[in-house]
Design a protein around this nucleic acid. Structure first.
Length: 933
DNA sequence: GACATCACG
DNA sequence: GACGTACGTGATGTCC
């Protein structure tokens, strides 16, 4: 061949991006063993190239070939229409680093690799295809993208590599109803929801083809639109003419691009075996390296086995932290480049600074953004002028800040953009702050939750911990900025110059953690946990917290007064019995009275040298003296008053009249959540007196409260996990599970069961869930330790599967350093091999975690599905209390809501896990939480 | 800020 | 054989 492209030549154009995405989705998320680099798509891409090269024989073999890629960033079509491809989600995080590698792979195969800034791969292929055709040669476009079908004809064909199907002129007519030369006309009318090409509303491919065939061309059709009979269609074509014409320019490929290479440069070349094998070996593709080596008749290079530590040692931080490099953004002009960059990348780490910690009350002070490690800015918004003197803070806004509304308006487009990932550390907090500014932040990623999914049980997941542990960097502490105690100031009083490095650094750290954790989720096989149990829960909790629950202040206030009176009466009696006055609330003083002055028996000093005066001890003493019983009563009232009837009133939000708790998604190692400020997961219920506090939790007028709770969920899960047939059968038959246990253990028939025997069996059942010990059971049942041990022995004899589960679980924990829930949540058990009493703790925790954790996962799944399930109902989900969900709903929708929510909860494990034991949910309703429960 | 106590599942 | 112990949380008051 003389090198010129002409008759007898055959150009192959491979749609690189299509190859990449197909490869990515066809393969599991593989990572390179040595360092955890995601390489699944590269592997698939190489396999496809290899198969392609292998198949290049016979009459259709190419003389010239190139792989054409889309250049990242915007194209000229975005200048025509800013919404073009705007609803494309960003490329998956683990795919992005693989883009450049696919270029490397192409070159390693010695195939030309082309992309041009500002153009799509389609345009390059169009230009080359036209050149090939005009030169009298053939061209095959290896792609199934219908946008390329306009190029078919005159020697140009397409090849769907997956189906190994050639698409010629007839194939195009089959697909579009028109020939290749009219494909753009049809596309202009039909539009494309994937690429966000608007087209003519209401007209699809079928109708479009009909019209084009009737009128001959789009231009003719639009000029003669008045003639169309169907009134709606006619009006659309007249009204939307401009939009349709613009659509045509979007779908019309550019055949006349200026290229800095010619077809001749694309001549087929044999790969250099050394280069290709080196690349494949570097990627650590063992099978493919060997296969290619065999094919090329070469010795396969040796790929070293990865050392287990290698992945962990891989440097997490290439860019050093530089607090002076952060930018302070004070105007729209300065903010715009940041927004441009965010849009280009498709992600941003965000952090808000506020005047306090209560997200339902505080004001927004500033926002920090970070787009890549080291590149962060802070946007001060409502910092206050430094006080003229120390006594009076000024209310004047500090100078050089951009107006809050302007900044929010600019950021809103980014924060609500479905194609831009917003990354935060504890994003729920920031989401609430933004929600109060009418900005619905989505989608989000959360480094705190990633750490929880990855490292639950190892450490807490606060930013300081994570930064120090994983970035080896200590963040600027907030204390010196705000001060402590009475002289503490809020963040708006912090001088902007001090706020910038602090705030921007937080966003910087968050972005670095995100880049670090993201690939680890795959490596540690907790992507599903993160994606199905953590991330989707954030918007659900955000809404629950913002909705809050109505609490009646008067009810609480009246109770407080009643408690105070009773306490005063008890105090008088206590002083009388003690023979002196003292602080009843001081365990230390009480101990001295009981065991010193009154010389009651059983005085045991704890590690601090003080007598223990816990409820169990006082209960024992109650037989000896009247005083302990009075103290117990006093303590109960004191607890109810201080923690509940008093404190709860302070938590009623002035604006909403409701109480807004905050859930801590990473609060418990097992997967349970915690509730704080206030804790609404420990509102009294066990004592009659305490239970009345729930009467203050009420629905809005015309509504009722609904309580739905799982019945015996942990025991059911234990029956499933440990595979205890007798337990499963009892649940299936709806038998009282504690009575059944008692019957099995003590040989008492069910119809002769006494409450006391049942109570003991109940204690054992709970003990089993907690990792039973003779001592613990003895204390709980108040029986001698030997007797308790006897119970346990008998229980294990009767249910040997339970002991097996316990042994296996502890064994698993020792081997792997973690235990797992049925849904794959890992709970790490770093102390499992500790010596001394800690070993016992760790063992029991390891036994309990899969049970408690699985139950927690189940209700999380229910909560995540609940908003969609009840969307058609006027119901709101307000609270979660571990195995209970509380709803507020208008009276007329009560039955529907119960039926719907109950079904969601009972089926929450499906389809991920099929439980051998059915989950049962009990429902209650009422005019307050006491009635509903 | 540690500790003891006690509210919940 | 002794250690010490039921699992998971958060809020409050005392005391140093």
């Amino acid at each position: 061949m003389d090198g010129t492209f002409g008759k007898g030549c055959h150009l192959h154009l491979i749609d690189g991006s299509a190859f990449i995405f197909r490869a990515y989705h066809a393969l599991p998320p593989l990572t390179r063993k040595s360092d955890g680099l995601p390489i699944g798509a590269v592997a698939g891409f190489c396999n496809m190239l290899q198969r392609y090269v292998e198949g290049n024989t016979g009459p259709d073999a190419p003389t010239h070939v190139a792989v054409i890629f889309d250049h990242s960033g915007k194209t000229f079509r975005n200048d025509l229409y800013d919404q073009y491809k705007a609803n494309r989600p960003p490329a998956p995080e683990d795919l992005r680093p693989q883009f450049p590698l696919t270029r490397d792979a192409t070159r390693a195969f010695n195939i030309a690799c082309k992309e041009v800034e500002g153009f799509e791969a389609d345009d390059i292929m169009a230009t080359l295809a036209c050149q090939a055709r005009d030169a009298g040669g053939r061209c095959t476009i290896i792609s199934s993208d219908k946008d390329l079908m306009q190029l078919v004809g005159g020697g140009v064909e397409m090849l769907d590599a997956m189906k190994n199907k050639r698409i010629d002129r007839d194939g195009v007519i089959e697909k579009f109803g028109v020939g290749p030369e009219r494909v753009v006309d049809v596309q202009a009318l039909a539009g494309d929801s994937v690429d966000n090409v608007p087209g003519a509303p209401g007209i699809g491919i079928k109708t479009a083809a009909l019209l084009i065939n009737e009128y001959g061309s789009l231009e003719e059709l639009l000029d003669r639109a008045e003639e169309i009979k169907q009134p709606k269609r006619r009006q659309t074509l007249i009204d939307k003419r401009e939009q349709i014409e613009m659509s045509k320019t979007l779908v019309q490929l550019d055949c006349n691009m200026e290229l800095d290479f010619t077809i001749e440069d694309l001549e087929v070349l044999d790969p250099d075996p050394e280069v290709l094998l080196a690349f494949l070996a570097e990627m650590e593709f063992r099978t493919l390296t060997k296969r290619m080596a065999d094919q090329l008749g070469q010795e396969a290079p040796v790929i070293p086995e990865a050392s287990p530590q290698a992945a962990e040692v891989a440097a997490p931080e290439a860019v050093p932290f530089d607090r002076n490099a952060y930018t302070c953004v004070t105007s729209a002009e300065e903010l715009q480049p940041w927004i441009d960059q965010i849009q280009q990348r498709g992600w941003v780490a965000v952090d808000t600074e506020t005047t306090g910690l209560d997200s339902m009350v505080v004001d927004l002070v500033g926002i920090s953004l970070c787009v890549e490690p080291g590149q962060a800015c802070y946007i001060p918004l409502t910092h206050r002028e430094a006080a003229a003197d120390d006594l009076f803070g000024s209310d004047e806004l500090a100078k050089d800040q951009m107006p809050l509304a302007q900044a929010l308006e600019m950021l809103k487009s980014v924060l609500e953009d479905p194609a831009i990932m917003k990354i935060g550390q504890n994003m729920k907090y920031d989401a609430k702050i933004f929600a109060r500014q009418d900005i619905a932040v989505a989608p989000i990623d959360d480094t705190m939750l990633m750490s929880y999914a990855l490292n639950g049980g190892k450490h807490n997941h606060g930013m300081d911990t994570l930064s120090e542990r994983y970035l080896d960097h200590t963040p600027i502490p907030i204390k010196p900025l705000l001060g402590t105690g009475k002289s503490a100031i809020t963040f708006d009083k912090v001088p902007v110059i001090d706020a910038v490095p602090y705030a921007a650094e937080d966003a910087d750290i968050t972005l670095r953690l995100w880049q670090l954790f993201k690939p680890q989720l795959h490596q540690e096989k907790v992507t599903t946990v993160y994606e199905t149990l953590e991330r989707p829960l954030v918007p659900v909790l955000t809404k629950m917290e913002m909705d809050g629950i109505k609490v009646d202040r008067d009810t609480l206030s009246r109770m407080s007064n009643a408690f105070a009176q009773k306490m005063a009466g008890l105090e008088d009696e206590i002083y009388e019995l003690a023979g002196e006055t003292f602080n009843v609330g001081s365990p230390k003083q009480l101990g001295e009275i009981l065991f010193g002055k009154l010389e009651l028996p059983g005085g045991k000093k704890g590690k601090t040298g003080a007598y223990a005066t816990g409820a169990d001890i006082l209960e024992d003493l109650a037989t000896e003296h009247d005083l302990p019983a009075r103290v117990l009563d006093w303590r109960q009232l004191s607890k109810l008053k201080s923690t509940y009837t008093d404190a709860l009133q302070d938590h009623i939000n002035a604006d909403t009249g409701r109480v807004h708790t905050s859930y801590i998604q990473t609060g418990a190692n097992t997967g349970r959540m915690a509730s704080s400020d206030p804790n609404l997961q420990n509102i009294p219920v066990r004592s009659e007196e305490g239970r009345r506090i729930r009467e203050a939790f009420i629905p809005e007028e015309g509504n009722v409260l609904l309580s739905l709770d799982y019945s015996q969920i942990e025991l059911r899960i234990l029956a499933h996990i440990a595979g205890i047939d007798a337990l499963k059968q009892a649940f299936a038959d709806g038998i009282d599970i504690h009575a059944m246990t008692a019957s099995e253990m003590f040989g008492v028939p069910l119809d002769e069961m006494t409450p006391d025997i049942r109570r003991q069996a109940k204690g054992i059942n709970f003990g089993v869930i907690y990792g039973i010990s003779g001592f613990g059971l003895a204390r709980n049942l108040r029986i001698p330790r030997a007797e308790a041990q006897g119970f346990i022995d008998r229980y294990f004899e009767r249910f040997p599967g339970i002991r097996k589960y316990m042994d296996n679980t502890v064994e698993f924990a020792k081997e792997h350093g973690y235990v797992q829930t049925l849904f794959g949540r890992k709970i790490h058990t770093p102390e499992i091999s500790a010596k001394g009493p800690r070993a016992g703790f760790a063992k029991r925790a390891a036994i309990n975690a899969p049970i408690q954790g699985t139950a927690a996962d189940v209700i999380r799944r229910a909560m995540i599905r609940m908003p969609d399930a009840i969307a058609h109902l006027p119901a709101r989900m307000l609270l979660q209390v571990h195995d209970e969900l509380l709803f507020e709903v208008p009276e007329n929708a009560v039955d529907d809501t119960i039926a719907t929510a109950k079904s969601v909860m009972e089926n929450a494990a499906d389809p991920a896990v099929h439980l051998d034991v059915k989950l049962i949910v009990d429902a209650g309703r009422g005019a307050n939480w006491a009635e509903a429960h």
